[in-house]
Amino acid sequence: MNKYRISKYNPIFRGSTGRYSKEDWTAISDIGKTFDGQLLTVELYKSVEDNYVNTVGTIMNYLNVSHLTVSNIRKGSNEEEFEKVVTKYQPLYNNNEIRDAYYNLVDNTKLSAQEIGPVVRLLLREDIGADVYCENVMRVFIGYDYLMGIHTAQPIESIVLDIERMGVFVEKV
């Protein structure tokens, strides 16, 4: 498998141990705070989140993956806590697809590149955890601190520049 770290974090600010040296936001809860002189607004947060969603779709299309399976779904909090987050960040949850995915997603759901967005958003926002994959072709890992890993059966180097033009960085690991 080819393994890639894909994130908003520019690798030139990564030390020899891999630690990121710049202060930067890492979660939806950072909205309203200032990092490196820039206020993290809902609009800025959403634009970065869009880059991650578009990256997953781009890789799926490149690899001719018709769908990703979502399994082992784990909710990050109970429904009452989720609704508090929805209320606090209303502009980011005003799309019914995201809330529908949270409440209705079941193990072994298969989603196309056009349908995977709400799940990627829920993962990035740490509302859910899940395994996201196309068996033997592609796996998507989204963890804490706004980090995404992609494992692929075939290399994606020929689309790295296209992905980076979307506003994220690709590092082969």
Rank of each mutant, 00 (worst) to 15 (best):
residue 82 F to M: 13
residue 92 L to R: 08
residue 153 A to T: 09
residue 62 Y to G: 01
residue 8 K to I: 14
residue 13 F to N: 12
residue 121 R to E: 11
residue 36 D to K: 08
residue 76 G to K: 10
residue 143 G to E: 12
residue 154 Q to W: 00
residue 32 G to C: 07
residue 29 S to I: 04
residue 140 V to L: 15
residue 105 L to M: 09
residue 36 D to R: 11
residue 86 V to P: 08
residue 112 S to K: 09
residue 122 L to G: 03
residue 16 S to R: 11
residue 13 F to S: 08
residue 139 R to T: 13
residue 98 I to S: 01
residue 145 D to H: 13
residue 114 Q to P: 00
residue 47 S to F: 01
residue 59 I to S: 07
residue 127 D to G: 02
residue 146 Y to P: 00
residue 116 I to W: 01
residue 60 M to C: 08
residue 69 T to E: 11
residue 101 A to K: 03
residue 70 V to Q: 08
residue 12 I to D: 11
residue 101 A to N: 03
residue 9 Y to F: 15
residue 126 E to N: 10
residue 74 R to S: 12
residue 67 H to W: 00
residue 75 K to C: 03
residue 173 V to T: 11
residue 23 E to F: 04
residue 38 Q to Y: 05
residue 63 L to H: 06
residue 60 M to K: 05
residue 167 G to S: 07
residue 140 V to W: 00
residue 71 S to Y: 08
residue 43 E to V: 06
residue 48 V to Q: 12
residue 111 L to T: 05
residue 115 E to Y: 01
residue 22 K to N: 12
residue 171 E to P: 03
residue 83 E to L: 12
residue 166 M to D: 12
residue 56 V to L: 00
residue 167 G to W: 07
residue 30 D to P: 05
residue 34 T to G: 00
residue 70 V to C: 06
residue 12 I to E: 15
residue 57 G to N: 04
residue 36 D to Q: 14
residue 51 N to M: 10
residue 111 L to R: 04
residue 31 I to P: 06
residue 89 Y to R: 02
residue 106 V to L: 03
residue 72 N to F: 10
residue 10 N to Y: 04
residue 61 N to S: 14
residue 97 E to K: 10
residue 171 E to S: 13
residue 100 D to E: 14
residue 169 F to V: 04
residue 81 E to C: 04
residue 74 R to L: 13
residue 141 F to Q: 10
residue 14 R to T: 14
residue 161 L to P: 01
residue 128 I to Q: 09
residue 154 Q to P: 00
residue 60 M to V: 10
residue 7 S to D: 10
residue 80 E to P: 01
residue 88 K to G: 03
residue 143 G to M: 04
residue 24 D to L: 02
residue 72 N to P: 02
residue 82 F to P: 03
residue 4 Y to I: 11
residue 14 R to E: 13
residue 43 E to I: 07
residue 34 T to F: 01
residue 96 N to T: 06
residue 49 E to Y: 06
residue 91 P to V: 06
residue 46 K to V: 02
residue 148 M to Q: 08
residue 42 V to D: 08
residue 136 N to H: 09
residue 152 T to Q: 03
residue 38 Q to D: 06
residue 76 G to C: 09
residue 14 R to I: 03
